[in-house]
Amino acid sequence: MNFYDIEFVKGFIRMCDDGWQQGWHERNGGNLSYRLSEKDVEEAKEYFKEDDKWQSIGASVPDLANEYFMVTGSGKFFRNVILKPEDSTCIIKVDETGEKYKIVWGLVNGGRPTSELPSHLMNHQVKKKATNGEYRVIYHCHTTNVIALTFVLPLDDKVFTRELWEMATECPVVFPDGIGVVDWMVPGGHDIAVATSELMKKYDVAVWAHHGIFCSGPDFDITFGLAHTVEKSAEILVKVLSITPNKLQTIKPDQFRSLAKDFKVTLHEEFLYEK
């Protein structure tokens, strides 16, 4: 089997291109990571090299010890992933302490994994524990309409969740746990990684104010679909607010409760407040 015929590799490349096509990855914006399964490692290991030196992660992730991740590269462009994935992406291995990594495939022309690696790995650790290992994807993208809303809505979990739920009936079904919001912070550092990982204990989506969204899921399709749904809802809200500050009608709390019952999802009452 050719390396590029392996399913997780094809899925990773496709998701990078899907994000670029949506306009969420200008220049070198955004990043994606995927935690390999044992089957993935078995299929890909013949292509791994083992001669790179260990480097500091910048965070401690002991629950990810000896795990492998496919990750986009720092300063690399999503639009180039489909053309030269070996230049724009890499596979890394976390050491037995969970504090260092080394590149075992990719970035053939030099470079390092995404500058958001601490955020990615800290959140992989959180989601691995919270989902008993089911979640494998972490995705950060610059969703235009979500970013726009961070300038006009209160940076509050309840407000963002309720407003986006109201924009399309499918939203509370797709992200029933709601959405968390992180105030503006310098990207790529330890502080934003910690703040995001706290939110990801409760949510699958965190909005980074004036920056984009950070989301997680079990596979590429579900994670991309989650980001796509959130951004579509934000686009509708931006259009509504551009027409009028006051909605004539919307989905009411009891209607949300009926929806939850029929679709067998749990909606937290904190988001179903009366306006």
Rank of each mutant, 00 (worst) to 15 (best):
A260R: 02
A65G: 06
R79N: 10
D177Y: 05
D17M: 09
S37F: 01
D52W: 00
W184E: 07
C141P: 07
D191R: 11
P118V: 05
Y4I: 04
L155N: 12
C16S: 14
G19N: 14
M167H: 06
Y34W: 12
L267A: 03
P176N: 03
N28K: 03
E50S: 02
Y273K: 07
K39L: 07
D177E: 11
D87V: 10
D219L: 08
N66Y: 06
I103W: 00
S197E: 13
L267C: 06
A209K: 08
W54T: 01
D191V: 06
P245N: 15
T196H: 00
F78T: 07
Q22N: 12
E170W: 04
F175K: 02
K127T: 13
V182N: 08
G30K: 14
K264Q: 14
V181Q: 11
D18T: 14
G133M: 03
S242L: 08
M70H: 10
E46Y: 02
V137E: 05
F151W: 05
W54Q: 02
V71M: 11
D63H: 09
G188V: 09
K232T: 14
L121R: 05
S197P: 09
N109D: 03
F224N: 05
R27K: 09
N2G: 08
I179L: 10
A59E: 12
D156N: 15
L36A: 11
K45G: 01
K239H: 15
E231W: 12
T169I: 13
P176D: 01
D17T: 09
G111A: 05
G180L: 03
Y139A: 13
I147Y: 11
L153E: 14
L153H: 11
S242Y: 02
L83Q: 13
V146P: 00
K100P: 12
T89R: 02
A195Y: 00
D63I: 06
A168E: 11
W54M: 00
I138L: 14
T143R: 01
G212H: 00
S60Q: 06
H268N: 15
Y34P: 04
D18S: 12
S216G: 04
F214S: 01
I13R: 07
M70E: 07
M185S: 09
A59N: 07
G73I: 05
F69P: 01
P253L: 09
N109Q: 06
D221S: 15
L107C: 10
W24R: 11
N132R: 03
